[in-house]
Design a protein around this nucleic acid. Structure first.
Lengths: 307, 307
DNA sequence: CTGTTAGCGCTTTCAA
DNA sequence: TTGAAAGCGCTAACAG
């Protein structure tokens, strides 16, 4: 049945015919047990409703499929507590795991890492962990956005934060601190944001009250909600307040006004994650870790600061 | 180890301690083989990059997780030819399958259905197939949109088609025919559209040339691209041309102008799909098939027809 | 070249 | 109450 039969073709045909007649269908399960591999990998994200993670999943799944691998998905619902159990459970069902932006504390992740191997990490670097890691330079990306706003004359900015457990939020914060050191006359207010467009919408009033002339949102989802909330409050964007996002999700270019953002190649991350994973599974040396640079995408949600 | 041990607690503890020491971790695979169930289901869509399918996946995965089930995803890349093999392969890896908007011909789907059971169908009804089916009344939805445009004075419409293999595209076409019979003075041009925002964008010139005062797009993705393409061509929306979408993806409300659309409860579909599936797996009688009615969501991309 | 067998790691049944 | 054994359906190594 497996194609590499060396006997008489007629016999093979007869066997195949009988198999069809008996409605025989091989058990992938038993095959996996005997072979010791399932040809499936897990992909875990904090929020499957986020287009950025969806884009990675879509490209990871397509890419892995070319090598006969399927992907098992799980959403940790932004819960750092449940994450370790979820991750261990799903890992045991397949051959390997891609952890995307895990929210659990470093210590737990470090403790788990060996058990999880083969493991590929996205958006979470940790020198203690021996696993390929793909990430985005959020620190530099947010600085580029801040510098863009600065060049437009903005001196009072607001940063709408992401989840406190998000490492990439920390990196943005770090980038902002650097920027403040470079441009001491700039003031940046930290405002609590969230993770969804609704959160961004709800933050609009706080942004207006802060008096900032420009708001940097944690990501595009937040920025899109903020944009809308600001408009509803009668605040003109970008005339009165400029807004930036982060990610460049497919819809960022279609908002009103189109969103200035830092563009992240999510599809590329999915492809590269699979390449690293394939190497790991084959016990090859995976390619080097990469830190992708976001690209400034200037659209119409940012403009010169009001007088 | 399985919690229902009847002996001395001290012994159980000692066993557990040894297990931990030996880094014992149960093999889900072997357990599945012995038990004859994997606690995983497959979810197959034509395009994982479509937010409508992503929303279903996200809710299906969350809902199934509550019952200890994981989901294996696959994207058929809109290919009706590869679909049957893909579907059979992934089905054999797990306990059941949810087929979302399959593109393969009816005959093939009917032939496959028995092999695939337990099977839940989304967006594809077929009386020959004995499987729970959840769908959207696209026919009525598009008619509601057309009627909305008609009430605004539009008499020359254009319909931007979806993939030829999409049954839901056919249903929309059917609804439009009904509408034409009801309102004989209305003209509806059929224009080839596609499946992505890029396709919608590319169709903008064709829509303008058609002379229609309103365009109904197959879905929101197409509509958003069309909106943008029209704007780039200097066509004012909705002043000169009204545009409608279908689905009400999360971003439809944030486009410029916000998109009038037929709202489809994708999350609800995911939840209901799991409920049907759970009943099937438990050999219970699944709840009745449902045909959800889209809800007209009037936003600012539609307005009175020009003079 | 063909047919037999052990074993993957679990669950369940049956015997001690 | 505890231990031993059969079997889930496949693969791979081994004799015949």
């Amino acid at each position: 049945m497996n194609g590499r039969f060396l006997g008489e073709p007629a016999i093979a045909d007869r066997v195949r015919a009988s198999a069809a007649e008996l409605q025989y269908s091989p058990s992938h399960l038993a095959r996996s047990l005997a072979l010791g591999q399932t040809s499936a990998i897990a992909f875990v994200v904090p929020d499957l409703a986020n287009p950025a993670f969806q884009a990675m999943l879509s490209s990871l799944s397509k890419t892995a499929a070319k090598d006969g691998y399927r992907v098992l998905v799980a959403d940790s619902a932004e819960s750092p507590e449940d994450e370790p159990l979820l991750v261990e459970e799903i890992r045991r069902r397949c051959d390997a795991i891609v952890l995307c932006a895990p929210r659990m504390p470093d210590a737990q992740l470090e403790a788990l890492a060996a058990d999880l191997a083969p493991l590929v990490l996205i958006n979470r670097r940790n020198p203690e962990i021996h696993a390929p890691s793909l990430s985005i330079d959020y620190r530099s990306g947010i600085r580029t956005l801040a510098r863009h706003l600065h060049s437009l004359g903005h001196r009072h900015l607001a940063y709408l934060e992401g989840p406190a457990t998000s490492r990439s939020n920390e990196h943005r914060l770090r980038g902002l601190e650097e920027f403040e050191r470079e441009e001491p006359e700039v003031r940046i207010d930290r405002l609590s944001g969230g993770v969804s467009s609704e959160d961004g919408h709800a933050a609009a009033a706080r942004v207006r009250e802060s008096g900032a002339t420009a708001a940097l949102a944690f990501n595009d989802l937040l920025a899109i909600g903020l944009l809308n909330g600001l408009l509803e409050l009668g605040v003109r964007v970008p005339k009165e307040v400029s807004v930036t996002g982060f990610d460049d999700i497919p819809f960022a270019r279609y908002t009103s006004p189109p969103l200035t953002t830092a563009s992240v190649p999510h599809e590329e991350l999915g492809v590269q994650a699979w390449h690293r994973m394939r190497a790991l599974i084959a016990r090859d040396e995976p390619a080097e870790d990469i830190v992708l640079q976001p690209r400034l995408e200037v659209r119409r949600s940012t403009a010169a600061a009001p007088r």
